[in-house]
Each structure stands twice: as structure tokens, then as C-alpha cells.
Design a protein around this nucleic acid. Structure first.
Length: 403
RNA sequence: GGGCGAAUACCAAAGCGGCCAACUGGGUCAGACUGUAAAUCUGAUGGCUAUGCCUUCGCAGGUUCGAAUCCUGCUUCGCCCA
């Protein structure tokens, strides 16, 4: 195995990161690794606690890919045990635990999605259920004895909750210990996580030290704000772009990126060179198009990205109709008038373009609904047999086939 | 173990006997504007067979012509003292 020179590797590793705990140590290990032709072991833990991954997850994954490209071994640690505990990080209240079945199902979908960023065949996969699920309660007590409550409370998130009078469950104290113990089991050289993981990563160092192992180097990546521009990207806040979403959905969502975030997205989510995007930033719209195309292309290929761009222009610049309109044909349950027609609000609600007929009325009266390109504001409009293209705002559309 | 307090729509938070489908902010949705689904501004934001009707303020009862508002019990959560 031939590794690049240490300084060269360091430059790649340090790009875009926030913290690097143990930098001197990393240099030494890279040197030894290069001399002996042995790759470093890079750990990344994923708790399969939700079914899909989004761009926020890809930030550390891209750093892992950097390590892969340098020739090191990436270990993806599936938190099959820890997912059931629930990482308290960044939460102001405890979250419900998952069942083993949930975790297994989530792991499978995650696995199929991280391949979009990582060379999935080159990774080593482990599960922390291997060592945790068979342990006894006394083992757990033993692990808990390794850290003090005061040290746990050093963690920012616990401090805030404690001072703020918010609840902290006892099991939440166990989470950092579990994650740290994973590092002991894996004897890893480096662990990567988001900045919010720093405390947990450091616990890993401590536990490895207690076990007379070399202490892992900790690398943290910035957290990615979501499309709302303020909060961390997450599915529950619905400010995310999913890895598995279609090209046109990804493209549309990325065009919604606040202008201030475009540069950060370039840095953390694309391979576009700084020289290229910094020129673009002067023209926010062009920059955003370039960003969206680069990201969509990385998941769906350049052709799909170009097609998404074309569709976007047609729908948003020219007020046109999107590709792949979902079709709707009313079934027998849809109410009709005496003459066999369907009332406008009823149809909107039944076809799924509006959540309820009341919402449909509001949309109609707010000039938000177009039939075959024409705004229709008459709530009493009725639809007889025919083929209609219905658009609600810019993002919802469908074709009605009424007989 | 003892004491105190809180539960209101997606979230936060007003309302404390009729003027309440419920103030306000956030979010969301729609509109205007802009080569952006950015920013800014405007409007909407329980449901329905729709100018009327029905169901909402933790749950179950009760008082009253009338309750989100008062009473009783229950549930959940938080705080304080031990």
C-alpha cells in the first residue's frame, strides 16, 4: 500500500473540519502508517434511528471518503445497540427508544444510501450490538462507574438542560460511554463526527486510555444548517434534502437554499473548487444553479441534473407544467352533483392536491389554483368529463381524468 | 415521603363565565415582486354536502340559560423540600 506524503494527507484531512484533537498524534500515526504500509482505522458511528439519510449526514461521510481515497480503512459502526438508547445530543428532551426491528430496517435503507458517497465495498462494517447486546446489567454498571456525574455534566447539552430545569434521563448519561466503548472495541485510530459529537468522541479517548490503548484522534465536521437557514438539517424539521430523493425534487429543494448558505454548501457538499464557486457567488442565482447541479449530479448523474435544471426553468420561469404529473381519476366515493359533475373544492381534496376541502377553498380564493394554466377563483366551479391539468402553487400539480 | 404549579391548534404562548374556531409570534401554505421555490411585502392557517352547520382548549363527570374559562375525580408533566 502506497500512501501519499504525510503533509499532503494532513492537508486533505484538515479541509473543512472544525476540531482536530490530537493533531501531533495523527502526524505520528500517519508516518508510521506510511512507513509500514498499513492503513489507519477510521471510525464513524451511525445510529440507524431514522430511515433516510440527507445531505447533513453526507458531510462526515464525505470526510470519510477523503480518508478512503488516501488509502485508509473506514469502519462504519452501526449503532444497533445505541440507537435503542437514543443519543441525547442536541435535544432538549428525551426521545423515545426504538425497537430492534425498527433499527434493522433503518440500517438497511441507510446502507443502500451511504453508497452514494462512500465506496461501500471498501468499508469495514461492524455493529455495536456485537458487544453490547450480550452484556449483563452488571457490565453496564461497571461501565457507568468509569465516569463521574460531574464530568458528564461538563457536556454542554447536559449543562444547559440541567440549569434550565429540563429533564435528563439516567440512561442518557450512558450514551457517551457506549459510544466511547465502541472505540475501545474497534481499536480505532481516528473517529469522525459532527461538532456536536465532540464530547462523545473525547469520552472514547478517555476510555481507550483507561484500557491502555492508544487514544483516538478526534475529527469533527461542521453541522449543516437546513434549508430554513438556521436550524440543523433534519428530517423532523423538514428542512432537508434527502439522498434518495429524485433529481427534480433535490434540484427544487436546493434552489430554496438561502443565499447566505450557498457558499457553505459548496464547501461541504461538493467537489467544486473554491476558485470556481467564489466567482459565482457574486451572482446568487447562477451560484445556486451551479450548486444544485453539482449536488444533484453527484447522486443522479450529470444528465439527470441537466434535465432537472430544464424542468425547473420551465416550471418556475415560464409557469409551465412539471414532468411526470401524477394522474387522478375519481372513484365512486367522490361526491358528484345531480348533473354528474364534481365540485372544485371536493375534487382538489379528493385528488390529494389539497389537504381538505376547506383548504382547497382557501387556495382557490387566494388565486393559488390553475386549471390548464388559467387561474380559477370560482369556488363553485364544477368539472364534467374531461382531461384537466391542475396546478396548486408552483410545487403541486396533477392531471385529472374525469369520466 | 411531603408541598406547589401546569396541561390551549404543527410549536411557543394569550384568553380566566357569553363579544371564542379562540390574541400574538414562529412555522407552513398561497399571492405580489425578483432571470431564485433566496430576501422583502400581503393574505390565509379545525372540518363539512358551505354565507349555514358540526367538532375543538389533557380525560371523565358536574354547576349554569350559557364553560377553554367555575367545581369534583382521573391522567400526565414540571418545580421545591426531605
Amino acid at each position: 500500500m502506497q500512501f501519499p506524503p504525510v503533509e499532503e494527507q494532513l492537508a486533505v484531512i484538515k479541509r473543512g473540519i472544525v476540531d482536530l484533537v490530537g493533531e501531533e498524534d495523527l502526524k505520528k500515526r500517519l508516518t508510521v502508517s506510511r512507513d509500514e504500509g498499513r492503513p489507519l482505522r477510521i471510525k464513524f458511528g451511525i445510529d440507524p434511528s431514522s430511515p433516510d439519510i440527507h445531505l447533513g449526514h453526507t458531510v462526515p461521510l464525505r470526510k470519510l471518503r477523503d480518508f478512503q481515497k488516501l488509502g485508509h480503512t473506514v469502519i462504519v459502526l452501526w449503532g444497533t445497540a445505541t440507537a435503542m438508547v437514543g443519543d441525547p445530543t442536541g435535544r432538549n428532551k428525551t426521545r423515545p427508544a426504538l425497537t430492534r426491528e425498527d433499527v434493522e430496517a433503518n440500517k438497511q435503507t441507510y446502507r443502500s444510501q451511504i453508497g452514494a458517497v462512500l465506496d461501500i465495498d471498501g468499508i469495514e462494517e461492524r455493529e455495536n450490538g456485537e458487544w453490547f447486546l450480550g452484556q449483563s446489567f452488571m457490565d453496564c454498571v461497571g461501565l457507568a462507574s468509569r465516569y463521574t456525574v460531574a464530568r458528564m455534566l461538563e457536556r454542554d447539552d447536559f449543562t444547559k438542560r440541567y440549569k434550565g430545569g429540563l429533564p435528563i434521563s439516567v440512561h442518557e448519561f450512558l450514551y457517551p460511554l457506549l459510544q466511547g466503548w465502541d472505540s475501545v472495541e474497534l481499536k480505532c485510530d481516528v473517529e469522525i463526527g459532527g461538532t456536536d459529537q465532540l464530547f462523545n468522541l473525547l469520552v472514547g479517548r478517555d476510555l481507550q486510555g483507561q484500557e491502555k490503548q492508544a487514544e483516538q484522534v478526534c475529527v469533527t465536521m461542521p453541522l449543516l444548517e437546513g434549508l430554513d437557514g438556521s436550524q440543523k438539517m433534519s428530517k423532523s424539521l423538514d428542512n432537508y434534502v434527502g439522498v434518495a430523493e429524485s433529481a427534480s425534487v433535490q434540484f427544487g429543494k436546493l434552489m430554496k437554499t438561502p443565499n447566505e448558505l450557498v457558499e457553505k454548501y459548496f464547501v461541504l457538499l461538493t467537489d467544486v473548487e473554491q476558485a470556481t464557486y467564489s466567482d459565482l457567488l457574486a451572482k446568487p442565482l447562477d451560484a445556486k444553479f451551479a450548486l444544485a447541479q453539482a449536488i444533484v449530479a453527484s447522486f443522479h448523474g450529470a444528465d439527470a441534473a441537466a434535465a432537472a435544471r430544464t424542468e425547473y426553468d420551465r416550471v418556475h420561469k415560464e409557469g409551465g407544467v412539471p414532468d411526470n404529473l401524477p394522474e387522478w381519476t375519481p372513484d365512486d366515493t367522490v361526491r358528484r352533483t345531480d348533473s354528474g359533475k364534481i365540485q372544485f373544492p371536493t375534487a382538489l381534496a379528493a385528488s390529494g392536491l389539497a389537504a381538505s376541502s376547506s383548504e382547497a377553498r382557501r387556495l382557490i380564493q387566494g388565486k393559488g389554483v390553475r386549471i390548464d394554466g388559467q387561474v380559477v377563483v370560482d369556488v363553485k366551479a364544477e368539472f364534467g368529463p374531461g382531461n384537466y391539468v391542475v396546478q396548486v402553487g408552483k410545487s403541486r400539480a396533477g392531471r385529472w381524468l374525469i369520466s
